[in-house]
Amino acid sequence: MEKKTLVLGVIGSDVHAIGNRILEEALTKAGFEIINIGVLSPQEDFINAAVETDADVILVSSLYGHGEIDCQGFKEKCIEAGLEDVLLYIGGNLVIGKQNWEETKKKFLDMGFDRVYPPGILPEEPIADLKKDLGIKE
């Protein structure tokens, strides 16, 4: 089966690079084609990369708390660019401060993300979800 393509990056003015590198390594090992646009990436860079590479999934990381502002209107822009079928995953410290996780998760699901992850999880969890969502058999 053809490899599924994932756009990976850290959104906004966020420079947290470690998790990004670990995710690239883990996702590549799991058999995905990774387009890593790295840290400090505006919404447009995710969208352009997804259009150019005909990506199946966009994975957004945000660790510094501005995720809430940075992701405003992201799904709408994806739709405008013809990416309505591209899956949107996001994970990290998505809001400022320690807030109720279920509420944070709901906030991002309402914004149009398909999967929302809390901080501190290992790459295995999103990898299992990706395989499920993309219909990849083990």
């Binding site: 510094y64 708390g65 410290n93 400022i96 401060g97 320690k98 901080p119 501190g120």
Partner: peptide, 8 residues
């Protein structure tokens, strides 16, 4: 709160 971001 370090693991969760900006502390109270």
């Amino acid at each position: 709160h370090e693991a969760l971001g900006v502390p109270t």
